[in-house]
Simulated assay, not measured.
Amino acid sequence: MIRSYEKTDLEEMVRIWYEASVIAHFFIPASFWASQKSTMKEKYLPLAENFIFEEEGQISGFISLVGEHVCALFIAPEMQGRGIGRALLEHAKTLKGKLSLKVYKENERAFHFYKKCGFVAASEEVDEYTGCVQILMEWEQVR
């Protein structure tokens, strides 16, 4: 089930974000992600509109939105490939008429996932924190 997040979810959300980030972003040192844990917990996640995918009391993943921008979509590594990311993204689409997000160019798996979900590449930029190229992707509801 998908539900709104509660403050008690933050620790698990950060764990999922960190573990999934290290695997998906193998081209960025794990130490970078480790250095961002407290900022994610204390600043970024609390400022976003967060939705949790939960099964049998266990958090499997989450999506974070700021307006129409998907700031985070992370699934616990052991739960990936089961449609959870797609379900969270579809939930966000029902809430918003259009969405945007950034994905690292080297994260080909995520880039192809978003393309399959109807997003199109709009532009590229270098991430100031990692020095890696990010692709801005956009989705808009067909009217």
Score class of each variant (00 low, 15 high):
Met1Pro: 14
Met1Lys: 15
Ser4Pro: 10
Tyr5Arg: 08
Tyr5Ile: 11
Glu6Gly: 11
Thr8Cys: 13
Leu10Ile: 15
Leu10Glu: 12
Glu12Ser: 09
Met13Ile: 09
Met13Thr: 09
Arg15Trp: 03
Ile16Cys: 06
Tyr18Ser: 00
Glu19Gly: 06
Ser21Arg: 12
Phe26Tyr: 14
Phe26Gln: 14
Phe27Tyr: 03
Phe27Cys: 08
Phe27Trp: 02
Ser31Asn: 01
Ser31Asp: 15
Phe32Leu: 10
Ala34Asn: 03
Ser35Arg: 11
Thr39Asp: 03
Lys41Pro: 09
Lys43Asp: 04
Lys43Leu: 07
Pro46Trp: 14
Glu49Lys: 15
Phe51Ser: 08
Glu54His: 11
Glu54Val: 13
Glu54Trp: 09
Ser60Thr: 04
Ser60Tyr: 04
Gly61His: 06
Phe62Glu: 11
Leu65Ala: 08
Glu68Thr: 09
His69Asp: 13
Cys71Ile: 05
Cys71Asn: 12
Ala76Glu: 09
Glu78His: 00
Arg82Pro: 00
Gly83Pro: 04
Gly83Gln: 08
Arg86Val: 06
Ala87Thr: 03
Leu88Pro: 03
Glu90Val: 08
Glu90Asn: 13
His91Gln: 04
Gly97Pro: 10
Lys102Phe: 04
Lys102Asn: 14
Tyr104Ser: 06
Lys105Tyr: 00
Glu106Gln: 13
Glu106Arg: 12
Asn107Asp: 04
Glu108Thr: 05
His112Gly: 07
Gly118Gln: 12
Gly118Lys: 14
Phe119Asp: 05
Ala122Leu: 10
Ala122Trp: 04
Ser123Val: 03
Glu124Cys: 10
Asp127Lys: 00
Thr130Asp: 02
Thr130His: 03
Val133Asp: 10
Leu136Phe: 00
Met137Asn: 00
Met137Lys: 14
Glu138His: 02
Glu140Cys: 00
Val142Met: 05
Val142Ser: 07
Val142Leu: 09
Arg143Thr: 11
Arg143Tyr: 07
